[in-house]
Design a protein around this nucleic acid. Structure first.
Lengths: 240, 240
DNA sequence: AGAAAATTGTAACAAAATGTACCGAGCAGC
DNA sequence: GCTGCTCGGTACATTTTGTTACAATTTTCT
């Protein structure tokens, strides 16, 4: 997949953040930095981040909050940095779903080892629908075969999908009931980052609607959330 | 973006209540306090509370009783504080339907983390298969599907709602019979704070009325409270 | 009561965001 | 090469939303 994993280091202390990024870059990883949760979110919108190293104690939005957000809206692995080795912190951090944690001060070499371990684990454990299990998904009056990349109606009639349409639909089916911004969708479907003013997703949504919505003028499956993005709103279930 | 959640701390000990509210306020939450269950009820009638932190052991009306009441008449999340870590307490508290609990003495940071977790859970659009709660609300002659973001009349005819209209209606339905100021509504719907003189909410109420009121000139569902704001006055019930 | 002030309703306008027709570059297969 | 399809970019129509202005309404003040 990815030749060089891209790590995002989020820490409000420049004396931690910068040398750490340099160290990671020196050891064959791409590294970006962010000084707070807001910057981190921005960075993740424009770059395809593979793993986040996150300081739990930061001014503004709490690290825990960002971690939980990541856990719930993406499946990007997170390694927490915490200043104190208190039990409550460990429990809370892992409850939220961090993949690992380190207590400051830490040995950079150990962090590197853990990053590699987590990435290995993340790549080994397949994402939900890239797994061997659910290869056919049912929604509304449609059935999508992920292997054949074919969409068929209730009546068995096939609806041909282009590659981009299939990818977009697959992304939606994996995240029903969640608002996805255009940036997220662009990143998730093609790995690109939106430059100036990108209407690509609008067009693809328009094309997808034309194929799967009964009445494309009044979309029911792919709702647009004004100022937010798009949301897939339909029950999705496995079809064995 | 996100409206500022408003937390109500109910505890009879001032030494707990006050510092806790200050701590929450410092961490980006709005916080009110109440010393007993009666005050808590009063406070909830005048403010739009998003979450209640409730000490289970209080003189007068019992905390458990208030919790049960909240659970049965609203869907405002509750986090219980309990002095004893006994099994009976945990069982009783969760049976009643508290969303979480902590045993005193507790780490404020942990409470903050749990508050955020509960709020996120409450705000998150649930995945279809988790959607066993109340995602369809009935009022007057209307039925609002929170998942599909669709409003339908008694006769089944759909009434299209814009994003802002849907958000406003959803906020009202979650707090029937409570006066909401324009500031609160602006915060709850769009997360904005009113600058100089903002008639945005007036307009959105006007537009919403045009769609859901039988006679928009004589509104029955969304009453205006002169000098106070607006109040939704209609029975709201779950529609399974 | 009547006048004045405060507050609300909403039409009208402006700004922002979205839908989609169309065009052309790229790319596969022939 | 040619043909047909895909897909991103552009342009323009449409929709949605915030702001302003002013009339209507309610309260307050003589």
């Amino acid at each position: 997949m990815e030749p060089t994993p891209h790590i995002l280091v989020v820490d409000d202390e420049r004396e931690i953040r910068e040398p750490l990024a340099k160290y990671l870059a020196k050891n064959g990883l791409r590294a970006s930095v962010a000084a707070n949760a807001a910057d981190a979110r921005k960075e993740m919108k424009t770059s395809a981040i593979d793993l986040v190293v996150l300081d739990i104690m930061m001014p503004g939005e709490d690290g825990l909050s960002l971690c939980r957000h990541l856990r719930e809206t993406t499946d990007i692995p997170v390694i927490l940095l915490t200043a104190m080795a208190e039990d409550t912190d460990r429990v809370v951090g892992l409850e939220i779903g961090a993949d690992d944690y380190l207590t400051k001060p830490f040995n950079p070499r150990e962090l590197l080892a853990r990053i590699r371990a987590v990435l290995r684990r993340a790549n080994a454990v397949p994402r939900p629908h890239e797994a061997t299990e659910t290869r056919r998904l049912k929604f509304d009056r449609w059935l999508l075969d992920m292997d054949r990349r074919e969409l068929a109606g209730d009546d068995g009639v096939a609806m041909p999908l282009s590659t981009a349409e299939f990818k977009l639909l697959a992304v939606f089916l994996r995240r029903p009931g969640i608002v996805l911004s255009r940036d997220q969708l662009l990143d998730l479907t093609s790995g690109r980052a939106a430059e100036v003013f990108d209407r690509t997703i609008d067009n693809q949504v328009s094309r997808l609607r034309r194929k799967i919505e009964a009445d494309p003028k009044n979309p029911v499956l792919v709702k647009t959330v004004w100022g937010g993005g798009y949301m897939f709103t339909a029950q999705v279930e496995d079809a064995p």
